[in-house]
Amino acid sequence: MLNDTNAEKIRSLNDSFRRNLVFGGTVLLTPGVTSLEIDRQADLLEAVRKFDNFTPDNDPHGEHDFGAIDLGSDRFFFKVDYYDQTGSMGSPDPADPTVTQRVMTIMRADEY
């Protein structure tokens, strides 16, 4: 289990990445998201950027690495995963950005 200091570092890195969606990692959109009209995709990305409804149920480790968003009648998820610099295995330390690649997947809930 990670200590509180590591969780704080991970949370800060995840929040920064989620809010800018450019620096700090890679964003993957599933086919269910890329098939949406471009304006709806933009609305979804903006909702991900602004998401702040983290609770003990959806964020038990305090890392801000998962969220569920309702956009109209559709539900979407985002999930941040941590890989090593080669992208071939999990990061040895998600709190250290020098050894971690963040990958955020944004998907329709029905694709999960």
Rank of each mutant, 00 (worst) to 15 (best):
Q101R: 15
L2G: 00
S35D: 13
A47Q: 13
Y82G: 01
F78L: 10
L2W: 07
P56M: 05
F51M: 06
D84R: 05
D110H: 10
G25E: 05
S12K: 14
S16D: 11
D81P: 01
A95V: 07
R102V: 05
V48F: 10
H64E: 09
F17Q: 03
S73D: 15
T5L: 11
I69K: 03
D4A: 14
L13R: 08
F78M: 11
Y83N: 09
L71I: 11
S73Q: 14
Q41W: 03
I69A: 04
G24I: 09
D93H: 02
H64G: 07
K50H: 12
Q85T: 12
T105W: 04
M1Q: 09
F51L: 06
G67D: 02
Q85G: 00
G72W: 12
T34K: 10
H61L: 15
H61M: 13
E63A: 03
T5N: 06
F54T: 01
M104Y: 05
R18C: 08
N3V: 00
S35K: 14
G87V: 05
D70N: 13
N58T: 00
G67I: 02
H61Y: 14
S12G: 09
D57K: 13
G25K: 01
N3S: 07
V22I: 13
V22P: 00
E111V: 09
L44G: 07
R108Y: 08
R75L: 01
G90S: 15
L21Y: 06
T105V: 13
A47I: 07
Y112E: 02
A109P: 00
L36P: 03
T105Y: 06
D81V: 15
E46G: 01
G32A: 04
V80M: 14
A95D: 08
D57I: 11
T34R: 12
M104F: 07
L13I: 09
R49E: 11
Q101C: 03
